[in-house]
Design a protein around this nucleic acid. Structure first.
Lengths: 100, 100
DNA sequence: AAATCATATTTCCATATGGAAATATGACCA
DNA sequence: TGGTCATATTTCCATATGGAAATATGATTT
């Protein structure tokens, strides 16, 4: 699954937000997420396959960490759009139309 | 549908990319998109409902324009992640672990 | 080796989604 | 008004998705 598709699910974005503070075992994510344990595990699988998180086994725990690379790709896609809101929108559009 | 979910579909991102060059009638999008006319129309509906495009009727044509606001929201979500790839990743993570 | 803990996988179900094809709608023109 | 063009909507189908519940797996402890 693409990073874009992975981000379409709010719980998955929430998982990434949690991992911004540092790596966490799966169980800790379950505690924070108002979702069943299997539910979280499924979403983690999607995030793994999208390359957005990495797992490491530590004792009986599975510790998840953020892998930001795919987000960087999204960020690059977004890049050319930034011009559309960083300046006043109407003025910019007008400018572009008149100076193509 | 959320902006995130709207972006999950590659054709929809492609439509937005086309609209970055300026507004276009639906038919012109169809020409560029290796998709049937109804297919494009369906995706345009999703983009409309997500607030990512606006339509204007001009004669018998329906002219579509980019509405970047929802992308700005995505950009804001992405913001805190930027720190994770703007500096060398390993060094940064190491730094954060030692200075929490 | 058995029991236990943490997590993953499977199964089931209801719903959402994309694409193709057919049809409908609305604006303009003759 | 009837016809045509551009586009939207509907219908159909196959597949994907999320969530809940049950079960399986792998590591650790006893």
């Amino acid at each position: 699954m693409s990073a874009y598709a992975a981000l379409a699910e709010p719980h998955r974005r929430q998982i990434l937000d949690l991992l911004r503070d540092g790596e966490r075992p799966a169980g800790e994510l379950v505690e924070h997420l108002d979702l069943s344990q299997p539910g979280v595990s499924k979403h983690l699988k999607v995030l793994r396959e999208a390359g957005l998180v990495a797992v490491r086994t530590q004792g009986k725990q599975r510790v998840y960490a953020l892998r930001p690379e795919p987000l960087a790709e999204v960020d690059r896609w977004l890049e050319p759009y930034r011009a559309f809101w960083s300046q006043r929108l109407d003025a910019l559009e007008h400018h572009l139309e008149e100076n193509p």
